[in-house]
Amino acid sequence: MTVGLQHYVVLSAILFSIGLYGTLGRRNAIVVLMGIELMLNAANISLVAFSRYLTPPALTGQVFALFVIVVAAAEAAVALAIIMTIYRNRRTIEVDKIDLMKW
């Protein structure tokens, strides 16, 4: 069976689900961030696969993947800065202990 579009989209769905579990289910804020990065990577795989198999001459999907990578880099920098500030102030980075604004 030759590898086609469906293989890539299914793989991307699997990676996205794993990242979703890491984001929803883990306590450590850094693991939550790693889950988000996994989800962005999975979305990028889908974008590039669609760009290759559905619209071969146009590279729109790859351009979008480039922008996703840029936004992911900015998001990682700001998120890690927030995590380190929280760690300096409260000595924890567990998301269920950061409940300062929880009513």
């Binding site: 929803l24 289910g25 883990r26 306590r27 450590n28 760690y87 000595r91 924890t92 998301v95 269920d96």
Partner: peptide, 11 residues
């Protein structure tokens, strides 16, 4: 706080 993150919040 490495090892403290073992279990999950909403498993």
């Amino acid at each position: 706080v490495w090892q403290a993150s073992s279990s999950s919040v909403v498993g």
